[in-house]
Nucleic acid binder design. Structure first.
Lengths: 340, 340
DNA sequence: ATGAAAGCGCTAACAT
DNA sequence: ATGTTAGCGCTTTCAT
């Protein structure tokens, strides 16, 4: 890189003290400097091509204007919108974010956490669905600012942003009920994820309240393959379906269900209706277009960023819990129960 | 945050000079310190919970170990794998990356570029498909290290990583030729993207070399909607299809083509075969599963990170051009030409 | 309204 | 092998 122009260079060129330049260039201190000096400083700074050094500033002020975002895997389609939501709130406020992927490993999460601390991030947005309680409690004790997103608070001492999953599942079951379905299957997400538990419990509660028969089948991962495997085991294990609709733990599981149904010569929604969860990218482009619960991932990102900045500013009560509304998007994968 | 433990704290506790601690804790300088001191330092550092301050280090060394990644939009499914590829190479080497989205705006790109410079990134990976030549030349003159990925070098003075798009399109056309197709349509990506031009030219060349009739139709964006609109205009504009296969500029355009065909009561591949480009997420999950050219996005990320680090280390010749091989993935969207 | 001086935490000469 | 000194570029008292 070429020799960088520093604040001192500008000061020398204007003929004032570096601190004056600093004041002139800083929003919160401009009013301490005379109008004319400010003008001269600005002009010279621009002329010289001065670029402030965020690193030096951060060292001095103890604020790097950088946040860490910890998530399991960016290639999971629910995260890009969330990251963009975070960014949309942060960028205009001068913050940047360092995004890291844990791939579901606690060890990796620890390493990345440490690395973010070394980089002096001002705070953390944690979107890893399972609960590394120990790490979060350590963080809290070290005085780290953080916000959890898309996972249940469950004793973690940080603000939390989640979607109203229970409501979403309830709406799904209600929708199937209206279509005349009586026997449902829920493909539950893997153990350890708070979302799995919440959605499963909501499913059971909803079936109860509508007087429907609801069977829960576990999956080993939130993935297409796991969904397909789970559905295969159901379809292989019994004389034709004892159910007419599937409430999948998320859209990937729903997609796996599509594959399994197709393999078994079953048609959706003619033979089996399917509801997903998330309304991820392309949910409308599968065949049939997937009826699913829209989870506001972008907004969750925005909200978590907002909460974190408030936390850092000290204007945020510790245990806040933001629950964002979800909505059922009815598309082609659900239909009236088949005549049997 | 709690009071941080500094290197000086450790030095005091051990009873040595800060610089000794610095040497003891630094890979490249450990051998300047006696074994026993190293051990003591490490032990105390651990005991005190010392966390190195990357910011201070960066100020001193003029290397932040942070790179900038500029891309159009993270929610475009080709980018998450690329970002993860970049990260997989960087993380083990102690680098982090700041990912920013331009949304295709040159103005935004400039702003973000500036912001990354202020953050003292050690280099840039630029994946914005179109060519903001001015910006890149300015960067080069300022001595910025950078690598371009997924766009043509075309006079830009930085190393470039691209997929072998021509080869991919050629393979697509060859595949359709073998299936007996004689009249093809190419849905060309929007003007301004180097990939649009390259793929279009490859399509025309391939049709020539196989003696096929190849029609090119422009789209206004690499999106589902644009693909659908373009296909609609073709299908609405003439008595039944004058073509039997579509080579789409990318998978999104192919997906739009699916929608349009369906709306027009045409079946894929029975009536029209479709080939995409990229093999993006879910390409195998659409109906029919999409025949497409696999572009190695993860590897492109890895490769661009590798090049950039070499550039920074000064071991990289300026105009390097890495062309990664692509491969045609044949799935269900292509079939033998229909009997007419 | 501006200047002088100190220092954030670290590393890199230069001693010894 | 270790200590001393200086300083990266900036902000922030404290003076004036």
């Amino acid at each position: 890189m070429q020799k960088r122009v520093t604040l001192t260079d500008v000061a020398r060129a204007v003929g004032v003290n570096p601190s004056t330049v600093s004041r002139a260039l800083n929003e919160e201190t401009v009013n301490q400097v005379s109008q004319s000096t400010v003008r001269r400083v600005r002009k010279v700074a621009k002329g010289l091509g001065y670029t402030p050094n965020t690193v030096a500033r951060g060292l001095r002020t103890n604020r790097t204007m950088t946040l860490g975002v910890i998530l399991p895997d960016l290639t999971n389609p629910i995260f890009p919108p969330m990251v963009r939501g975070i960014d949309s709130y942060l960028a205009p406020r001068g913050y940047s974010s360092l995004v890291v992927n844990t791939d579901g490993s606690d060890a990796t999460e620890r390493t990345l956490f440490q690395s973010l601390m070394e980089r002096q991030v001002d705070g953390l947005i944690v979107a890893t669905g399972h609960s590394n309680h120990q790490l979060m409690h350590d963080a809290h004790e070290r005085g780290v600012h953080a916000v959890m997103v898309n996972r249940d608070a469950n004793g973690v001492p940080f603000p939390t942003v989640i979607g109203d999953d229970s409501q979403g599942v309830f709406a799904s079951v209600a929708h199937l009920h209206e279509l005349g379905h009586k026997r449902l299957v829920h493909l539950a997400g893997p153990a350890g994820f708070s979302t799995s538990r919440i959605r499963r419990e909501a499913f059971e509660a909803a079936c109860n309240s509508f007087g429907l028969q609801g069977r829960v089948v576990d999956t080993v991962a939130y993935s297409i393959e796991a969904g397909q495997a789970a559905m295969d085991s159901i379809l292989d294990g019994q004389a034709t379906a004892q159910f007419t609709a599937v409430v999948a733990g998320n859209d990937l599981l729903a997609l796996g269900t599509y594959h399994s149904l197709r393999m078994h010569g079953l048609r959706c929604p003619d033979d089996v209706s399917v509801v997903g969860f998330n309304d991820m990218l392309f949910a409308n482009d599968f065949q049939p277009p997937l009826t699913t619960v829209r989870s506001p991932h972008f907004e969750m990102g925005v909200e978590s960023a907002r909460l974190l900045l408030n936390e850092i500013a000290g204007t945020q009560p510790g245990g806040a819990r933001v629950i964002l509304p979800v909505s059922l998007i009815v598309r082609g994968s659900t239909g009236a129960v088949r005549a049997s």
